[in-house]
């Protein structure tokens, strides 16, 4: 799946998907769930938190 297609599926721009991939932006919870839903996986399969 392309970055543009994923962005369109979850309602953000391709550049925002790129920023999420490069850890330059932490998406909202809603967008996080939308991304996980597109791939039909759980939220923690897509995102993780390394702590402070």
């Amino acid at each position: 799946m392309s970055q543009a297609a994923l962005g369109e599926a979850v309602g953000v721009s391709r550049h925002t998907i790129i920023a999420i991939e490069q850890a330059r932006y932490s998406p909202s919870l809603e967008t996080g769930f939308r991304i996980a839903k597109v791939f039909n996986v759980g939220l923690e399969d897509v995102f993780g938190w390394e702590g402070d």
Partner: peptide, 11 residues
């Protein structure tokens, strides 16, 4: 395409 799309959450 980009011009017609609304501002997203990051923007």
């Amino acid at each position: 395409r980009e011009a017609s799309s609304p501002v997203d959450e990051r923007e």
